[in-house]
Amino acid sequence: MIAIIDYKAGNVASVKNAFNRLGVECLITSDHETILSAQGVIFPGQGRAGTAMKELKRSGIDTAIKNITRPFLGICLGMQLLADFSQEDDTECLSIIKGKCQKLPSVLKTPHLGWNKVEFVGNSPLIEGIRANSPYFYFVHSYYFSPLNNDCLVGKTPYGFDFASMVQKDNFFATQFHPEKSGKIGETLLSNFCKLCGR
């Protein structure tokens, strides 16, 4: 079973729909034990960093996340919250991957919205079968994750400048784009994640 963390931030249903289309059992939950015993964990997210971190702390999910040893995938805001800090609402985040989140430069149309390329520069089991030809994924965001070290970088995206669109550290994977809304290519990435979870 894959656990989808519910922390009142965004469209968890669309992630569940994506797993249902793959025929993989999943559960929307905020229960610590369920999260820690799942074969894999999805950390989705839309909304503001400040509000999201407040809810994670209130519910104690912040601590639970740090104890996860199974494959974990943060999506969009779920990626940004893995950083040390976000400029959005001046928020202390989970400090799982070193770095900070900054607002996109104001010369660029914000939010960065639509299909953009991901150039894979690192290796990851999640990009098996899709790493060639810089595929397009669907993005919607106004802040971006800027990692301290480049060792965690899996993919980058050119939007006037290159930003980190996919990172990983140990069992923690994260994408700035929405694989659940990225057509067939997104389904492949999620399916690779399920395989990694033993599904």
Binding site: H112, G114, W115, N116, K117, S134, Y136, T157, P158, Y159, G160, F161, D162
Partner: peptide, 10 residues
Amino acid sequence: QPKNCLAKRI
């Protein structure tokens, strides 16, 4: 020019 690959949508 700074590279920007954001696709035009149909």
